[in-house]
């Protein structure tokens, strides 16, 4: 990993279109501003990890299933709404 030291309000530039700026430095928190083309998705890493964990859980969970029973419940619920 490339490690750079930056002061408040200093930036780093990645490629031609991405700028990352240090906006605020607190004791345990750093506020970061990102300017990037809008087609790029930017997410906190926790979001990815959470989704990964759910995917793993979903794979493990299918040993415990009664799909038919639950399927009927879901159908009943949606019919009620109409």
């Amino acid at each position: 990993m490339l490690v750079l030291t930056r002061k408040l309000n200093e930036s780093i530039v990645i490629g031609n279109h991405i700028e990352i700026k240090v906006l605020k430095v607190g004791r345990n928190l750093v506020e970061i501003g990102i300017s990037a083309p809008k087609e790029l998705s930017i997410f906190r890493q926790e979001v990815y990890l959470e989704i990964q964990r759910k995917n793993m859980e979903a794979i493990r969970s299918i040993s415990s299933i009664d799909l038919k029973g639950v399927g009927k419940l879901v159908k009943a619920k949606n019919l009620k709404k109409k």
Binding site: V47, I51, A58, S61
Partner: peptide, 18 residues
């Protein structure tokens, strides 16, 4: 949407975020 199953219907969850 990806489903996390459980023997208890009330505990079954769905990932609507991803």
């Amino acid at each position: 949407a990806v489903v996390v199953f459980s023997a208890e219907v009330a505990d079954i969850t769905v990932n609507l975020k991803a």
